[in-house]
Simulated assay, not measured.
Amino acid sequence: MPQTVVITGASAGIGRAVARLYGERGANVVLIARGRAGLDAAAHEVEELGGTALVRVADTAAAEQIEEAATAAEQALGPIDVWINCAFTSVFAPFDEITAEEYERVTHVTYLGFVNGTRSALKRMLPRDRGTIVQVGSALGERAIPLQSAYCGAKHAINGFTSSLRTELLHRGSNVRVTIAQMPAVNTPQFSWVHSRLPRHPQPVPPIYQPEVAARGVVHAADHPGRKQYYIGPSTWATVWGNRLAPALLDRYLARTGFDSQQTDRLPPSGRSNLYEPVDQEEGCDHGAHGPFDDSAHSRSFGAGLARHPALVVSGLALGAAAAAGAAVRRGLAGRS
């Protein structure tokens, strides 16, 4: 039997790339987002690749809309096996330039949208005692950066919420699994439609990866949900461990570099933002999975591959330690000769 997979934020970016991978598997893919044009294009891709698609236009910030989408999914395609929370929105600006309404909107979509999706998934998975929930997180959920306080705050909240939920599931002895795929900088269309008050065009902090790298990490996390979280890409590892080992130093570094590194030398986007309304709701407005940084984005990540095969990481660390020990012994012997 094919899997039934729900993906929020499926009309573009990482969610769109994840939908394609499940389409290749022949899965039943439920595509949820606000923009109809992007959803219809994603559904066409899923079905061309061999899957079955169901489109539901919904705002993840509205719990009742997500619940209606979940009901429709199971009525049409059967029990939900995997639920992937990926939808988000953001504002690029210093904190004191973000209005209270804008901050609330980012929090409602990027944090409470994950809560709403998780609630609807659990309502169906817990009675069956099976199912997997994947939260698409970010390295910025562990290490905040300037100009994205609303987004970073929401991603931090997702980590805390998911950790609390995981302990509750463990207490119950539930076979429902929840995991987080922590993302690096990804070349998605958000940088062309994000609500921004920056003087120049926003960009992800390099190194930048293509959505397909992120998507492979998400699908692997869904297939192997026993781990608490997955770090996708070497920059995610470096960010997390740099923050754990030298947070004050990283503060000063980001204060010095974090403004320019999130902007190109181009003028800011001239179109409207997607903060309150989708920009792909009209026919012909599909934005696809990729953003404007194809020329500088990596389509492969050695670190992401290692994240899918942790035994290789352990082996590599052991070999590195052995090599370092051997070098120390040789230096000691040379010193005595």
Rank of each mutant, 00 (worst) to 15 (best):
M1H: 05
P2Y: 02
S11H: 03
S11T: 04
I14F: 08
G15D: 04
V18N: 01
V18P: 05
E24H: 00
R25C: 09
A27Y: 02
V30H: 00
V30M: 01
R34S: 08
G38R: 03
G38I: 02
L39W: 00
D40Q: 08
E47D: 07
A53M: 04
A53G: 01
D59E: 02
A62M: 06
A72E: 09
E74Y: 07
G78V: 02
G78F: 06
C86E: 03
C86Q: 07
S90D: 13
F92K: 02
P94V: 08
I98H: 00
A100G: 07
E101F: 00
R105D: 13
Y111N: 05
A121Q: 05
L122Q: 03
L122R: 01
R124G: 15
P127L: 06
D129W: 15
R130N: 11
V136Q: 02
L140R: 11
A144M: 11
Q148S: 12
A150Q: 13
A154C: 12
A154L: 05
A157I: 12
N159M: 09
G160A: 15
H171L: 08
S174A: 14
V176Y: 04
R177Y: 11
W193Y: 14
H195D: 07
L198Q: 07
Q203S: 12
P207N: 13
Y209D: 05
P211L: 03
E212P: 02
V213A: 10
A214Y: 01
A215C: 11
G217V: 00
H220M: 09
D223G: 12
R227Y: 01
Y230L: 00
P234C: 07
T236I: 13
L245I: 15
A246V: 15
P247E: 12
L249H: 13
L250W: 10
L254S: 14
T257D: 12
T257L: 11
G258I: 02
S261C: 09
P269M: 06
P269K: 08
S273I: 00
P278D: 11
V279L: 06
V279A: 08
V279S: 03
E282R: 12
E283A: 12
G284R: 07
G284E: 11
H290N: 08
F293R: 09
F293M: 07
A304Q: 03
G305P: 01
P310V: 02
A311K: 13
A311L: 12
V313I: 12
L317D: 04
L319W: 06
A323R: 11
A324Y: 08
A328C: 04
